[in-house]
Write a protein that binds this DNA or RNA. Structure first.
Lengths: 351, 351
DNA sequence: TCGACGTTTGGGACCGCTCCCAAGGCACGG
DNA sequence: CCGTGCCTTGGGAGCGGTCCCAAACGTCGA
């Protein structure tokens, strides 16, 4: 039984009872028009005489009316929310403060669209199953998917469910099935490695991200193209984006006993680990080894010395993703859309 | 005009048309009961015969039915969502990866409650006004408020609107009006400074957070208590939680020309900046100056050497906050609830 | 002046669920 | 054997919007 209405005899500062929210009918009555007209006024005002539109807007202002999203969603047959899906295998994303930019930007861009952001994560494979159930059960109107691995089982379910989806990054092997927004990984990596060469470094090693991700693979490709024939596999190690793996990869290269005077790391975050390994091995940065990262996350500024890196336009990526998702959800666009954004080299003192 | 139904003659893998979602009536029909009974079964199953409950559940499983939240929300007269509010003045929060733990945990805890998480930020004061309008206009059922400053105008509006709210941290000056979840800042700071003293350090400086926040003030108080009569204002500087301010504060103390052999910094993030300043001044950590942070964020591991710090139970805080908010929203609890969580000292190599 | 046609407007029929009331069942005691 | 009261159950009345159809109203050309 809910708490009975409590009414204190001499409570401090008599709080006015919460007024029930005005409805569209209240507005209609005050403006002297019908419900239908108010509804039209609310939705763009097409086919409503300017004078009527004005009086409806006056009534709305007078009553402090705001539309009831639940009712609108029910009537429109949509849920009003969009899921931001991060599968646990990308848990490292949470370590990287930049992902917060996604949440912030999504939420900001979604609000004027009358949609909410649902942040969802799958702890493990069985939860990923549940997550798939949840998403395809019609609880959301669309999905924003963070950097999926190519074997993501979610991908096939999303395709089958025909749920509007935008992928952040390029879904390797599923490029044609999804809309996606990404940066030109290959070119960006090419640019920064070229910068390294331009400063006189000749033996450039790299610690890549996972090669089954578009970012990991693309950045390695750009590195390889910049080096051309002097590409040497002995200078290549692989990580999984985590800081720790950056350290391990660097240690592996060091153990091989080959000389190198520069290191391109697949992410700023891994670069922090890499620098720790270098320092422990007695190499100073940048004197002995120039280090370059990728992403321009706050980690790049935490590094000592601050990292030379590639600015990854996360915010722009998020804005584009929402724009595309809106097109998809509105049905204005049927076939997948692909956007490639450009990046910028940020030179600091590590290279 | 929406895209006309497209039906490719020989498309790859004929996609089945999206079936309309089953409704509660479909379930009722299949189970041979009425809508009302299904609704009861859906909501705890009270006053439903076990046999009937079972057949309803069978029907639900057979149809793959899931409740339509929009309809439920409309009928129940609630919005189904909860706002996580971060005002821009705490923008630095976004720099700190730990805040992602909040989003992740909130979303996970809210899901079984049938509620969504809305992440909202106010860019500036005028937007904060709009945010206040939005929140109090009945778009959300409750609010989770991140670490407000004591002069937060939002606070008074939230109190007036009687919107269920839980504050993360203690709202200085508004303790009695809100529910909140926090750690024992004072004791935690006391403990870590005592640890510093225990390692033989005698002159301990500090860079605090903003003193108009409960965390900034509480941590300074704990520092002062640990030092007792040897507390010396010349060893105290203030920051705003940002990495940069940690650097500035440390530089200020260094410029004063007083000697110190340990530094307690109000957050790991600021501690990174502090260590940069120390290093530039030629002091090594921990040989010349032991450094302790606060929060145990990933930044603590990025630091070189890794930071000794206080583990801040962000996840536990988030879980508690949602639990309390649920009580409030359900009306099971009318008066504000306060929870204080304990922390743990994490000793690494910086001190 | 009249008919055709485009623009506005009102209002009924939902959207899918919860809530509540009244009716039917059933066990139990007198 | 019947009345009483609790447990179950059905179904009507919303919740607050959108959408669509038909009626009312103009405008314009013949």
């Amino acid at each position: 039984m809910p708490a009975p209405e409590l009414r204190r005899a001499h409570g401090p500062a008599p709080v006015p009872p919460r007024r029930p929210r005005p409805t569209i009918d209240d507005v209609a009555r005050l403006a002297g028009v019908s419900r239908g007209t108010v509804s039209r006024a609310l939705n763009g005002g097409r086919n409503v005489r300017p004078a009527v539109l004005a009086s409806v807007n006056d009534a709305i202002a007078a009553l402090d009316y705001t539309v009831n999203q639940a009712a609108r969603n029910l009537a429109r047959g949509r849920t009003g929310s969009v899921a931001f899906v991060i599968s646990e295998r990308q848990e490292h994303l949470f370590e990287d403060p930049n992902w917060g930019v996604f949440v912030k930007t999504f939420s900001r861009e979604l609000r004027p669209l009358g949609r909410h952001l649902l942040v969802t994560t799958a702890q493990d494979t069985s939860e990923e199953q549940l997550l798939g159930d949840y998403l395809t059960a019609g609880h959301v109107d669309g999905v924003l998917l963070a950097l999926p691995y190519d074997d993501e089982p979610l991908l096939s379910r999303l395709v089958a469910s025909r749920l509007p989806t935008v992928v952040l990054g390029r879904p390797l092997g599923w490029e044609a099935a999804f809309s996606w927004v990404m940066i030109d990984e290959e070119q960006s990596a090419f640019d920064i490695v070229t910068h390294l060469l331009g400063t006189g470094r000749t033996r450039i090693a790299t610690v890549t991200g996972p090669l089954h991700t578009s970012s990991g693979k693309g950045r390695l490709d750009g590195y390889a193209r910049a080096l051309g024939p002097s590409f040497d596999p002995v200078l290549v190690a692989h990580g999984d984006w985590s800081m720790h793996s950056g350290r391990l990869g660097t240690e592996q290269i060091l153990e091989r006993g080959v000389e190198f005077d520069a290191l391109f790391v697949g992410s700023d975050h891994m670069a922090i680990g890499a620098m720790q390994a270098l320092r422990e091995a007695g190499r100073s940065v940048p004197a002995d080894v120039a280090v370059a990262g990728f992403d321009d996350s706050v980690a790049a500024l935490m590094a000592d010395p601050p990292l030379t890196t590639v600015h990854n336009p996360f915010e722009e990526t998020a804005v584009e993703a929402v724009r595309i998702l809106d097109e998809l959800m509105a049905g204005r666009q049927a076939s997948p859309l692909h956007v490639v954004l450009s990046t910028e080299l940020v030179v600091r003192s590590s290279a």
